[in-house]
C-alpha cells in the first residue's frame, strides 16, 4: 500500500465520507477545533508569557504550569482529535499539501520540546529564568507555526484549477 492508497482508503471510509458530506458535523468539528485553539492555545500563551516574565510575575512559574496543565492536556486531546477528523475526511487533498506536512512536522517538534524541557522547566520545581525563556520562545515559535500552517493549508492550490480556499470559504 502506498501513501495515495492509504489516504484514499481513509478519505472514502464510511465515517470520513459522512463527516465530509455533512452540512453540520464538519463545521461543528471545525468550530470545536478553533474553540480549543482559543481556550487551550490561549493557556499555552499565558504559560509562555509567564516563563518570559511578562505576565503574572508574582505567581511562581511552577504554579502556573501545574495549575493549567490538566486543562491544556484536555484541550490538546480534543483539539488533535478534531484536527485528525477534519484532515482524515479530506486525506487525499491534505497528504500532498506542503503546509499540512509542515504542520505535522511541527507537531512532532511539540513532543520533542516537551521531552527536552520535561525536567528543567515542566518538572515541578521553579525553572531557571534563562531556561524558562528558551522554552517559552521555542514553544511560541512552534505553536504560532502550527497555527499559521493550519490557516495556510486552505490556500494551497496544488495542481487544481480552483484554489482550495475558494472551495472552502465561498462554498
Amino acid at each position: 500500500m502506498n501513501i495515495a492508497e492509504i489516504t484514499h482508503a481513509i478519505q472514502f471510509s464510511g465515517w470520513a465520507t459522512d463527516l465530509r458530506e455533512s452540512a453540520l458535523a464538519y463545521p461543528i468539528i471545525m468550530s470545536l477545533h478553533l474553540t480549543m485553539i482559543a481556550f487551550f492555545g490561549g493557556l499555552i500563551l499565558v504559560t509562555d508569557l509567564r516563563l518570559l516574565g511578562l505576565i503574572l510575575r508574582d505567581v511562581p512559574a511552577a504554579d502556573v504550569i501545574r495549575g493549567l496543565r490538566p486543562w491544556k492536556q484536555l484541550g490538546f486531546v480534543v483539539m488533535v482529535t478534531c484536527g485528525l477528523l477534519l484532515a482524515g475526511s479530506k486525506a487525499e487533498q491534505y497528504a500532498p499539501n506542503p503546509y499540512f506536512q509542515i504542520k505535522i512536522l511541527l507537531l512532532f517538534c511539540v513532543a520533542v520540546h516537551a521531552l527536552a524541557f520535561r525536567r528543567s522547566v515542566y518538572g515541578g520545581a521553579e525553572p531557571r529564568p534563562g531556561t524558562a525563556k528558551l522554552a517559552a520562545y521555542l514553544s511560541l515559535a512552534i505553536w504560532l507555526g502550527i497555527m499559521s500552517m493550519g490557516r495556510w493549508i486552505a490556500y494551497y492550490e496544488g495542481d487544481r484549477d480552483k484554489p482550495v480556499a475558494q472551495a472552502v470559504v465561498r462554498q
Binding site: I37, G42, L45, V64, G67, L68
Partner: peptide, 20 residues
C-alpha cells in the same frame, strides 16, 4: 487566542481550579 486564553485563565480560577 490571547484575549480568550487570558479570560479562560481567570474563569478557571472562578470555577475553583486553574492557577493556585
Amino acid at each position: 487566542a490571547m484575549a480568550i486564553g487570558t479570560i479562560v485563565a481567570v474563569d478557571l480560577r472562578l470555577l475553583g481550579t486553574g492557577i493556585p
